[in-house]
Simulated scan of single mutants.
Amino acid sequence: MQERVKIVFGAPEDFGFSDAIKNELTIQGYHVIDLSRINNNFKYPNISTRINNLFHKTFLNDKKYKSKVRSKVITANLIEELEKHQNINYALFIRPDLFPLDFFKSVKSKFSKIVGYHWDGMNRYPDVMDYIPYFNDFFVFDPLDLKSNINIVGCTNFYLSRIVSRLNSVGNTGAFSINSYQKDKIKPLTEIKRTLESISIPLNFIIYSKNKREIKEANELGFETSSFMTTYQENLNHVLSSSLLIDVQIQSQSGLSFRIFESIGYDKKLITTNKDVANYEFYDPNNILIWNNQSAQECLAFYRSPYRPLPKEVKEKYALDNWIKFVLKLGNFYPITLPKTV
């Protein structure tokens, strides 16, 4: 029996995303060593360190002392966990800048291949640039970032195919949108919402925030709100039970969100504000409406027209099954690229 490929893995835990990816990779047959929770589980090693932090912050105005302590403690904890495992060849870190830089300085030599993937705009988190030298390959999802460093490679996001088959969905109607509260998203979300309401399309529009003012504003605009994070698997249940997905991009980036790849993977129609989607091979105006304040009748015609299935190889290309093989260069895979920017 062939030994399973071991992958050290780390990613943001927000919305249960790291758990969902780990579960998907495990179903695919990989042995996943997940460091995500360890990275987010910081405790002061002793009371004296806590007191020292208070002293540095209060009397020395040293507000970076805690981050230095955290980096040292978390790095030690991560290395301790790694030492429990033998014969690890591959490592994948999504948003590696959320991990201590010292950790990567210490462990790069432990792997035959260590890969980083930044699924956010580098202009939003520029510190990630310091991490690039410690990876064999470093991928970004935003074509605009390809101009920032010659040592990075373009690669899209992906969708999960294996865990979806184990989820239960009810119905297949209406439009679904879920977003953390972000000021630049509220206006286009409201415009889309009001247009779809005018043609009686069932809506499930959710805004997440823990800020009372933001919750109040969203409620006044007619959005359903939540102060509790929905897990990614719960999010997928919403996606699967909808026929139309809504994607509103952050204005500072042009990379394609996970919502777009969910529409590909699960055969869902999509309304998106991201005009750059037209530069990708899977763009089909019959399936994807690029929002430009279309009339209610134009939206209704789009909604009612049947979904046009994508070629099998296109769907396979953007599934995590292929994505992980591409970034780690494992076996046969479809190469994934980003469109060139002007």
Rank of each mutant, 00 (worst) to 15 (best):
197 E>Q: 13
303 Y>A: 13
138 F>R: 05
78 L>T: 12
158 F>R: 10
323 W>P: 13
178 I>K: 08
130 D>Y: 00
227 S>M: 08
135 F>I: 11
340 K>H: 14
89 N>C: 07
49 T>P: 04
334 Y>M: 10
169 S>A: 14
206 I>V: 08
77 N>E: 01
279 N>A: 15
54 L>N: 14
1 M>S: 10
296 A>I: 06
175 A>I: 05
227 S>C: 01
242 S>H: 02
94 I>T: 03
12 P>H: 07
248 V>G: 09
56 H>K: 06
31 H>W: 08
211 N>K: 02
279 N>L: 12
174 G>W: 08
103 F>I: 09
38 I>Q: 05
177 S>N: 14
235 N>Y: 00
324 I>C: 07
142 D>C: 05
129 M>G: 08
66 K>A: 13
55 F>P: 08
261 F>V: 14
71 S>Q: 15
334 Y>E: 04
12 P>Y: 00
203 L>R: 06
16 G>M: 03
56 H>A: 06
240 L>Y: 02
31 H>T: 12
139 F>M: 08
324 I>H: 03
258 F>A: 14
302 F>D: 07
19 D>A: 11
282 F>N: 06
20 A>W: 03
185 K>D: 07
303 Y>F: 10
75 T>G: 02
321 D>S: 14
38 I>V: 15
71 S>D: 06
274 N>W: 01
186 I>H: 04
108 K>Q: 11
92 L>C: 01
309 P>W: 05
299 C>R: 02
211 N>P: 09
131 Y>V: 13
15 F>S: 10
31 H>K: 12
118 H>M: 05
87 N>Q: 10
148 S>C: 04
27 I>Y: 14
64 K>F: 11
217 E>H: 15
100 P>L: 00
13 E>Y: 07
273 T>I: 05
186 I>R: 00
155 C>F: 05
1 M>T: 15
334 Y>N: 15
12 P>D: 09
124 R>N: 06
197 E>D: 11
249 Q>D: 09
287 N>R: 06
